[in-house]
Nucleic acid binder design. Structure first.
Length: 834
RNA sequence: GCGAGAGUGGCGAAAUUGGUAGACGCACCAGACUUAGGAUCUGGCGCGGAAACGCAUCGGGGUUCGACUCCCCGCUCUCGCACCA
């Protein structure tokens, strides 16, 4: 079958007689179908000590129904990496799976009166087919879906192990509540005050939930960012800011007339002598006792209610007017003994630090504004260089300086004073050095049906009791899916709730929260190394062989959420003994969005391009080629229908040219000719450029243009021997095969070449052959290009200058002046200064 | 406000790290072959100019024989964080 499927409408002869009337276009439908059928069982990868391993992974999709252009781009990029690494001799792991829990399944299931599992698995079947049509070289044996109990049972097991180690706990907090989705969201899932999924406004709400103690890994998550040299700087910076480490001092201010102490955290211990009041968060636990029975109690409680309501009604991004109220109580600055009034202030956050702030209006903008509003004293104690501040200062001075009016610390520089003041507090026992992080613990509870159940039983006698390992997985109830009650949350399902306490055997209540779907995606990459292993989340030897992921590819929108959680999970799994790595992803490529008409493709904007339609019209190879060619991967890709046609045109030109070459390999070297030598040189130059473009930064766009240039020069060269024409074409097919794999496989075969093109070694270049023999040297006068010289590559500088000065264009440009200086850049240019 | 990144033809983009600005492709123009061309092939294509040449990489300065590239000032856009004490 050399040419059968290769001929669409054409007669398809391959010995160069191209019919004048036939329109020669390759039959991508037949070719792609043929090769995809063959590849069904290819790409199966197992551990192999003889080859270097390479694990390339694209962020797995949510099975929403159909793939979109963003997926096409993401998975094409990953597939080119996988295919080119295979050709370069690596043992490549390239798996695919489904992030299959999540809210859309519930909505769709309710609408269609079906079980979310049916909806989800139906989508998976459809999307798997779509991915196959793209010719993506996955090891499909390793496919996983996170909603499968065989997957999440291991997650439940790890949950219990983490609970055991104190890495998971329950608490009542103010959470982000999405009214529309009827569930809690993590801080990371709130985007501009709106739900990351449904985009409706988020309101705060007090409720109980489960938390991962991610903050206990804050320091390591921060430190290890330094190891991520293969990540975009931008993502590292975003994570660093998100973790938000601050160093400072914790300090206790005793409450006057009480045993209570107010603990504060400050990054500016050097300003502690300038404290003129204390501000507490409205939720501060001490407030209740402070105001109980005082004349101010009523007003303070009213104020707290007022600001709490206000907070709930505010739109995100809006900052409420700064306001507060005096509690009637005072506390004592332990450094000065000064009595300072205690206020409640609406801008103090309970979630950060201690929920209490020592207020230094002279050196903090917010405290300054607050002091002005409420007529509180302003006491400057840090004098910036060359300035003397007094209580009439017009704005807060937040920079460093020399301490004044600060007892024994007066005269010290800010930085030195910070240390001395902390040491003093430490010695006296009322304070110490403290590090605080912006990062909060990860709330993982979701009040939804379609998620992994939290394996906990609540017993009135025994309290919180883990489900015994032998009883895992805790599965979702699947009964009522035919009715409109489909997807009732677990807390509305008595049959699920009813349980026996594993400890005392009495009737107990099953936990009804499910886990955030980000839990599943935090370790799936590890599961791919041993996806059918039943005795734990990973088979350790296999995980040790494959991990970490060498190249991870996905959208930058996951820069914090998924990538931070995954880093956390890897560290936890390491500490649980499952993994031997510190970081999951050695290299990260964040690919840009696919946009059209200047905007991200979305249904609401009506600018969506359907991959199915494109593939039907142009074939997968063309779609792949265009999405790689139009922009480098990290940049946004502007979709352009005409550009797709350009890619199609290129493949068809290659097709017609290949047919003319015949199906018989030519092994005999032709007589040496200039044209042959030139082509050989271009072949080596192209191999070099393509290889370097792919290896250094995945710039497939320039790799493809290099191939196009080689082909352009090939098709321009009418007198070239068949031998070199075939050599050039072989090279083009090899270099292009990771990008347009079906086409290259078919053409390779049509040329009569042995084996599968994808199984060939990646071509290598010879630097000596790639060198040009003659060069065009630019000659400049005063830095402006005035002429060009064609010279032998090994010409010496003096000779070159002589030639340049004798050039008639140069003589004219110099206008009779003499050269004061000449600059020669090897193999590039001569610049004459006169 | 804080942090990060970007600004090059009509468009998507190149430029070996200070050395020919605009490779490659799209669009467009002209021509060829055609009943036809939305197929294919050939040529042209930053702006001005007949040409010589001049002007061009957001704007303004600077360093240099030479700057898209390095330095300073400013403008615009994108993204992230946003009362973090």
């Amino acid at each position: 079958m050399t040419n059968g499927t290769a001929s669409g409408t054409a007669s398809g002869t391959i010995n160069g007689i191209v019919s004048a009337t036939a329109v020669h276009k390759y039959d991508f439908r037949a070719i792609e179908g043929k090769w995809q059928a063959r590849w069904l069982s290819d790409n199966r990868t197992d551990e192999d000590a003889a080859k270097p391993k390479y694990y390339v992974l694209e962020m797995f999709p949510y099975p929403s129904g159909r793939i979109h252009m963003g997926h096409v781009r993401n998975y094409t990029i990953g597939d080119v990496v996988a295919r080119s690494k295979r050709m370069r001799g690596y043992n490549v792991l390239h798996p695919m799976g489904w992030d299959a829990f999540g809210l859309p399944a519930e909505g769709a299931a309710q609408k269609n009166h079906m079980h979310p599992a049916a909806w989800t698995y139906g989508n998976i079947d459809y999307m798997r087919q779509q991915l196959r049509q793209l010719g993506l070289s996955y090891d499909w044996r390793r496919e996983i879906a996170t909603c499968n109990p065989k997957y999440f049972r291991h997650e439940q097991k790890m949950f219990l192990e983490m609970y055991e180690k104190g890495l998971i706990y329950q608490k009542v907090t103010t959470v982000n509540w999405c009214q529309h989705c009827q569930t809690v969201l993590a801080n990371e899932q709130v985007i501009d005050g709106c739900c990351w999924r449904c985009d409706s406004a988020i309101k705060p709400r007090r409720m109980s939930g489960w938390f991962f103690r991610i903050t206990s890994y804050a320091e390591e998550l921060l430190q290890d960012l330094d190891k991520l040299s293969g990540w975009p700087e931008k993502v590292v910076t975003m994570q660093r800011n998100w973790i938000g480490k601050s160093t400072g001092m914790a300090c206790d201010f005793p409450v006057t007339g009480s045993d209570a102490k107010i603990s504060i955290f400050t990054t500016r211990p050097d300003t502690v002598f300038g404290v003129t009041f204390m501000s507490l968060a409205p939720e501060h636990p001490l407030l209740d006792t402070l105001v109980a029975g005082t004349p101010q109690e009523k007003d303070v409680r009213a104020f707290i209610d007022e600001v709490t309501t206000e907070k709930q009604q505010l739109n995100y991004g809006e900052e409420p007017e700064k306001k507060g109220i005096f509690t009637g109580r005072f506390c004592e600055n332990p450094f000065t003994g000064d009595k300072v009034p205690i206020y409640v202030a609406n801008f103090v956050l309970m979630e950060y630090g201690t929920g209490a702030v020592m207020a230094v209006p002279a050196h903090d903008d917010r405290d300054f504004a607050f002091a002005k509003t409420y007529g509180l004293p302003i006491k400057p104690v840090v004098m910036p260089e060359g300035m003397i501040l007094d209580e009439n200062m017009g704005e807060a001075s937040t920079g460093p300086g020399v301490l004044a009016d600060s007892g024994p610390f007066s005269g010290m520089e800010s930085e030195a004073a910070k240390q001395a003041i902390i040491a003093h507090a430490d010695a006296k026992g009322f304070g110490h050095a403290q590090i605080t992080y912006r990062l909060r613990d990860w709330g993982l509870s979701r009040q939804r049906y379609w998620g992994a159940p939290i394996p906990i039983i609540h017993c009135e006698r025994c309290g919180v009791v883990p489900v015994p390992l032998a009883e895992l997985p805790v599965e979702l109830p699947v009964d009522a899916y035919q009715t409109k009650d489909t997807c009732l949350p677990l807390h509305q399902r008595p049959e699920f709730i009813a349980a026996l306490c594993p400890q005392c055997g009495q009737a107990a209540r099953r936990e009804t929260d499910t886990m955030d779907t980000f839990v599943e995606s935090s370790w799936y990459f590890a599961r791919f190394t041993s996806p059918r292993y039943e005795d734990g989340p990973v088979e350790k030897e296999k995980a040790a062989y494959w991990l970490p992921v060498d190249q991870y590819i996905g959208g930058v929108e996951h820069a914090i959420l998924h990538l931070l959680y995954s880093r956390f999970f890897v560290k936890v799994m390491r500490d649980l003994g499952y993994l031997n790595i510190d970081e999951p992803f050695t290299n990260l490529l964040t690919q840009g969005m696919v946009i059209k008409d200047g905007a991200k493709m979305s249904k609401s904007k009506g600018n969506v391009v359907d991959p199915d339609e494109l593939i039907r019209q142009y074939g997968a190879d063309t779609v792949r080629l265009f999405s790689l060619f139009a922009a480098p991967p990290e940049r946004d890709l502007e979709w352009n229908a005409k550009g797709v046609e350009g890619a199609s045109r290129f493949l068809n030109r290659l097709y017609r040219y290949t047919l003319e070459l015949g199906s018989t390999p030519v092994t005999a070297l032709p007589p040496v000719s200039e044209a042959g030598k030139a082509m050989e040189r271009r072949i080596h130059q192209t191999i070099k450029r393509v290889t370097e473009n792919i290896e250094s930064n995945f710039h497939f766009n320039t790799a493809i243009s290099a191939v196009m240039e080689l082909f352009n020069s090939l098709s321009d060269e009418a007198s070239l021997s068949l031998y070199w024409r075939r050599q050039a074409m072989r090279t083009i097919l090899l270099l292009l095969s990771p990008m347009s794999p079906h086409f290259c496989a078919e053409m390779w075969q049509a040329m009569g070449e042995k084996g599968d093109v994808a199984a060939q070694d990646w071509p290598v270049w010879d630097e000596a052959i790639a060198q040009e023999e003659r060069l065009t040297i630019v000659v400049q006068v005063q830095g402006k290009v005035r002429s060009r010289l064609s010279v032998a590559a090994d010409i010496d500088d003096d000779r070159l200058v002589v030639m340049a000065l004798a050039d008639e264009n140069i003589i004219r440009a110099m206008a009779g002046k003499t050269a004061k200086k000449t600059v020669v850049v090897k193999k590039k240019l001569v610049n004459i200064v006169c």
